[in-house]
Write a protein that binds this DNA or RNA. Structure first.
Lengths: 247, 247
DNA sequence: CGCGGGGTTGATTGGATTCAATAGGCGTGG
DNA sequence: CCACGCCTATTGAATCCAATCAACCCCGCG
């Protein structure tokens, strides 16, 4: 299951994006071809590079790497609101013609694919399935946000971390970015993880240790190993239904 | 400003809904009329009534009252994810054909307006502005969710409560549900407020008291008085831009 | 008049932050 | 090639914000 997508996709990130979209809504060969022809592959962006909003005027897709949306508060505290993984739209503003008020930064070497907003509009008219897929992607993004609210509101530190690790496991599995042995790359520091789940760096560290001691996961050099997915989902109280990936 | 909408609207809740939609995207007289003809006014629902998901198969609009979406965790803890005020769509599943995994409950006597999903689909084709308005509403809903994430993640108890009171002030102002004297009805108990902002009932109580002592607000019998909006927004670190209401 | 829900208050507990210090990894530059 | 500095991970100790436990008051209502 974990490498099904991987073997199918090969390693072209545009194919990965098309595969991801197809999970939301099947796309015929014509629509896929149209997307292939319209998408422009951007340069490789180094980690910790902030993306300017003007760079978001096109429809942007993360082809490879890792991106976070976040807000910086006056007192220096930072909250990450969204994690963007390969195959995801960077921002859904194109659907409604608005721009987000959040900042946007890479945490790994990343490549962005762009489609001119106007060109995308034409494609959406020509291939309604493409539009539906994008809207479903936005809906899943919103569902992920609601789960984050629940985590931050009523889950314990261990549950929050277990939840986000589960979520990433399922999201990355869907695009073939998990290994058959049960691991995936997580290019975030513990400080960044804390900014995502609302915990201090120190507490993230201690809580991850306790998760490791349960045997559910192990960590090394930016890699997460899911040792016991059953146990991890149980610890998190996690139900992947909201990701709409069971297809 | 606060009663501009109110005087314009009179008190027909369907007009309030149309007014709210028009703030997202102007609607011509024809589109408004079509909506007026398609919408079915539901019965008055008592407080604390849970809405069944099947009741959400139509496009549902809150005409009057108050609705919360929430998740109940195994350990009895509850998190409210969304506050629905009059003029809002109850749920945006109709845009993508999915249903939310959350529960849904009234906290006040409420009336829901319904448009058959199929009928709404036709209207959306006939009046693209109506579709755009709905999509913008969904986008603002998502933006509100992101702000909640930020509140729960990095804001203090006082900031969270001040934020949500600000948010409601602006949202309710837009639909004429704030008084010229600077008050609005908040049909939520302190326990429910706590479930929304991730605080215990007791701490909500103490924090509201400290907000009152600053002179920014006062409370009585389900009414919130905004005594000093400047001070309140400053305490909250609140910027209403994300609500897209400046129009 | 008793009951229950919501609001308020005090005392205690506890989870998480903060402060502080150490260790390891990695790239840069001497 | 090694020294240095920086970033990340880790650990310990002290502190603090908020939760929990426990009363009590008020009020509307049966």
């Amino acid at each position: 299951m974990s490498n099904f997508a991987g073997t199918l996709l090969g390693n072209d990130p545009v194919e990965r994006f098309l595969h991801r979209l197809s999970l939301f809504e099947p796309l015929d060969a014509e629509a896929r071809d149209a997307v292939r022809r319209s998408i422009n592959r951007g340069p490789l962006i180094p980690p910790l590079q902030e993306l300017q909003p003007d760079a978001l005027q096109d429809v942007s897709v993360l082809l490879s790497g890792w991106i976070c949306h976040f807000r910086l508060l006056g007192n220096g505290r930072r909250q990450i609101t969204t994690l963007v993984v390969p195959g995801d739209f960077v921002d859904f503003g194109f659907l409604v013609g608005t721009v987000s008020s959040l900042q946007c930064v890479t945490t790994a070497h990343s490549q962005i694919g762009r489609i001119r907003t106007r060109a995308f509009g034409k494609l959406a008219l020509q291939f309604p399935a493409l539009l539906r897929a994008s809207q479903r992607a936005a809906a899943v993004d919103a569902a992920i946000g609601r789960e984050r609210i629940i985590s931050l509101g009523v889950r314990t530190a261990a549950e929050r971390l277990a939840s986000i690790l589960c979520e990433l496991w399922f999201r990355l599995s869907a695009i073939g970015l998990t290994s058959a042995e049960g691991s995936y790359d997580l290019p975030m520091t513990q400080a960044e993880l804390g900014a995502a789940v609302g915990l201090s760096t120190v507490h993230v560290n201690r809580t991850l240790q306790s998760l490791r001691r349960t045997g559910a996961i192990s960590l090394q050099s930016g890699k997460v190993w899911i040792r016991d997915l059953e146990k991890l989902t149980a610890l998190a109280g996690f139900d992947p239904a909201y990701l709409s990936l069971q297809a």
